[in-house]
């Protein structure tokens, strides 16, 4: 790791000030992605501003029609939360499957979505459920928030403070694991909302996206079993050592069907 300075602000205001005054400063949440990046000397922030203990970013709250999760909430807390289990069990399952137990004890929802790794789990849940992201400056729909791989609508000095999800009992997430990293080679979050079906795919390579053709198929009364990759643009996928674009494309359809079949 290159030399850097570390700050642990006491309040959101202080954190924002630290980030504002130093262009090279970077927000640090759970650090479960950032630390390995720093150890590999792939990033050189001058300062890390630790958000993990900010009171403004803490807590899981039931809100009207759903649930709000503070950005500094760990995956383990989400997985174990009685509130989340009650309103959005699929999200608890998703959180309980990220990384491994030690990673889940530190990694946070805010950190995960701000990083927007194209193989991360959380972004698919936000997109499929139509979650809204609250930042230090504004509120954004998930669809506006995620702008491509490792890319979000966050501006310099802006941080995620909370994510709000609608309640949804009929939702499921399936992760098809990369056999080495155990990240999602492909992941699919399916949800049946009052407005209709929503399906989000992660792991494709360009960042999380909605599979609108499949949503329309289902909303039009099409059979779950009839969903195939023929309805999915291959261009969403890239290939690597662990799976070609064609394979990921195929797996996406398989796990969407399997996820849907658990909704009944």
């Amino acid at each position: 790791m290159y030399e850097l300075a570390y700050s642990r602000p006491e309040s959101l205001t202080e954190a924002l000030a630290l980030l504002a005054e130093d262009e090279g400063a970077q927000a640090l949440s759970g650090g479960q992605t950032l630390m390995p990046v720093l150890r590999a000397r792939l990033a050189m922030p001058s300062r890390l501003v630790d958000l993990q203990r900010l009171p403004e970013l803490a807590g899981i709250r039931l809100v009207e029609g759903g649930i709000e999760i503070g950005a500094a909430t760990t995956h383990a807390e989400v997985a174990a939360s009685a509130h989340v289990r009650a309103v959005l069990p699929a999200l608890a399952d998703l959180a309980g499957g990220i990384g491994d137990p030690a990673i889940r004890h530190r990694g946070t929802i805010g950190g995960s979505i701000a990083n927007n790794d194209p193989a991360a789990c959380y972004p698919s849940a936000l997109l499929a459920l139509g979650a809204t992201v609250t930042t230090s400056r504004r509120t954004l729909a998930a669809e506006e928030f995620f702008t491509g791989m490792f890319s979000t609508a966050l501006e310099p000095g802006e941080i995620v403070t909370a994510v709000r999800f609608p309640a949804c009992q009929r939702a499921a997430y399936i992760k098809f694991r990369n056999p080495a990293s155990r990240f999602a080679l492909v992941g699919a979050f399916v949800a049946q909302l009052p407005s209709g079906y929503r399906i989000a795919i992660t792991g494709g390579g360009h960042g999380v996206f909605r599979w609108r053709e499949a949503e329309q198929h289902l909303d039009g009364g099409g059979a779950m079993a009839a969903i195939t990759e023929d309805m999915l643009d291959l261009g969403h996928f890239t290939g690597d050592l662990h799976g070609s674009a064609e394979y990921r494309h195929h797996i996406a359809a398989v796990i969407v069907r399997r996820a849907l079949s658990t909704l009944a």
Binding site: P179, A180, L241
Partner: peptide
């Protein structure tokens, strides 16, 4: 089933140089 050290055929870079890309056996496999 999983382990494989892969070099890029053109550049001879090791493509599987960490546990992110080299498929180690784990308890659940």
């Amino acid at each position: 089933l999983w382990e494989n050290a892969v070099y890029d055929p053109d550049t001879a870079q090791l493509m599987t140089a960490s546990y992110m890309d080299y498929g180690m056996p784990r308890a659940d496999s």
